[in-house]
Design a protein around this nucleic acid. Structure first.
Lengths: 227, 227
DNA sequence: GTTGCCGATGTTGTATACAATATTCAGATA
DNA sequence: TATCTGAATATTGTATACAACATCGGCAAC
């Protein structure tokens, strides 16, 4: 199956544009760049140590997703309204219920066991918000990859990132509970059960987030300007 | 509902990047640029009468969708395999069935009548493949806008374009029939019926396309090079 | 006090020039 | 003949410079 030589081509030189894309995406997902924050090309390029051209390429790549570009008016970190968040969750529910169902249905014994272990690890090591998020993300990325639907998986992960940056790690109890159920359905190869758990979990998460937003709507987050 | 003054800000000056984006997208959707065709930056920029910078911005914007960029190896018109087309249709089915259901459920009498007329017009004037496609696209864009799900609508139209450029106008009978049924469900405000029609229509269209591709797989289309 | 009109300033868009890398093809060698 | 090597060529990535536009401030007029 696997080739004799499995060089992952580690540490291949990233282009300036790729590096900038990763850096900006990471900054947005980790909350260092907050929704609505202006992204001035000259300033960002200077901070990253590159010229404006590859920076613009990176921004174009993130446009419509994590970044909003409005012609000559400039660009900002995309800010989501309540309506948009509800819609994104609706799309996630439709896609993820299908995807998890397909994934669980096609799992081999070995793969199911692997996912089971991954899920337990994930719930055991509860670290800070950011690494917790990326750990959960990695689990779902792995799970959904078994659905053999690369485009759907990509869409889902994208939507997840889009909405995930608004969370403040409030849903830990829900998550642990949902993951326990999900593990059972994975071992039982129960696609419908898994889909139900995922939908219920998404709805809970969504409601948590909306409640938090309604509560904090009069306390807008402010970016701490870099020196 | 509609504002008293409805200035559409017509004929605002497009930037070179926007113009290039529209031009390239249109060329791909109309088939002048075929899947797999190389997109050389210098050549394209010269043809469009702009420099490489705004052209690159346009290509980055279409990347991952209609265009595939592979680092320094260059970029091509995205070419879809059979598996990918099947997957895109699967996503369309999931999203569009939900979207049409929501749209039909919320239709006012006036809106339903308007869509009815639009649909009839669409079936009456059957012109060439390209304008036929864009007419149908406009109808669904209008229909889905009534679902009040802008992101979902955008995704659907994007998926539609992605897969639509492979069609060769073979599904006219199916379409006319499906549209007739859809009109009835629109007038009856029958969301479930409309969703069923859309799903069935998508499945038929998908199977038509796959059959055509299986038939023509040994006759690869070749681009007619511009002078 | 409010509105409208410039001018100064800053930011983005675009062209040109150059650097870095991929591709290609000729030629040598097994 | 097939394959490998390496220089020539072509194409993409990036930096700099400049042009076009938007924003923001003050000032005048109503």
């Amino acid at each position: 199956m696997s080739p004799a030589l499995n060089l992952t081509w580690s540490a291949k030189p990233l282009s300036a544009e790729e590096a900038a894309t990763v850096a900006i995406r990471d900054a947005i997902l980790s909350g260092r760049l907050v929704p609505g924050q202006r992204l001035a090309q000259a300033e960002l390029a200077a901070q990253l140590g590159i010229s404006r051209i590859p920076l613009r390429d990176a921004l174009r790549r993130l446009d419509g997703d994590l970044v909003t570009i409005d012609g000559r008016r400039g660009c900002w970190v995309t800010s989501l309204e309540v309506d948009e968040i509800e819609e994104l969750y609706e799309i996630r529910i439709v896609l993820e219920s299908r995807c998890v169902s397909l994934a669980v249905a096609g799992l081999s014994d070995q793969e199911a066991l692997h996912l089971f272990g991954l899920s337990e690890q994930m719930d055991l090591m509860q670290s800070d918000a950011h690494s917790g998020y990326s750990t959960r993300r990695a689990f779902y990325a792995e799970l959904y990859s078994h659905a053999n639907r690369p485009r759907m998986r990509g869409l889902i992960l994208q939507l997840r990132d889009n909405v995930g940056r608004y969370h403040v790690l409030k849903d830990v109890r829900h998550s642990v509970d949902a993951h326990e159920q999900l593990r059972r359905h994975i071992m039982d190869r129960n696609p419908d059960g898994a889909a139900e758990v995922v939908v219920a979990h998404l709805e809970e998460t969504r409601d948590d987030l909306l409640a938090t937003m309604a509560q904090d709507e009069h306390v807008p987050t402010l970016a701490t300007e870099g020196s």
